[in-house]
């Protein structure tokens, strides 16, 4: 069990949150015009890194807000928390 700094509510137990998987997935601007391959990639292909992972979490049993997290998948250390609309910050530590 890890603890996560909700940008709105502060440090809370992981049990209050829901992990939504990889973040920064870009939805094709004009879905009707992209090929099946590109659409399928957007739908199904995900990173599975050993090290830094940018993912989105929701404070389900709290403010219900989504936000981004950079987590080291080896240590579960959370190196950054930032808003959905922000781009991923540079972080040091962890392994890329």
């Amino acid at each position: 069990m890890i603890r996560i700094e909700c940008p709105w509510c502060g440090l809370r137990s992981e049990s209050e949150f829901t992990c939504g998987g990889q973040s920064h997935i870009v939805r094709p601007e004009n879905p009707a015009e992209v090929s099946d391959e590109i659409w399928a990639e957007y739908l199904y292909q995900r990173e599975n890194p050993r090290g830094l992972h940018r993912e989105r979490w929701r404070h389900t049993y709290g403010c219900r807000q989504w936000f981004n997290v950079i987590r080291d998948t080896v240590t579960h250390e959370i190196l950054a928390v930032y808003h959905m609309t922000d781009s991923a910050p540079e972080v040091s530590g962890g392994r890329e």
Partner: peptide, 13 residues
């Protein structure tokens, strides 16, 4: 509710 919130907060901000 969760489904709609996710689209509003994460995609169509």
């Amino acid at each position: 509710h969760r489904h709609l919130d996710e689209w509003l907060q994460c995609e169509w901000t």
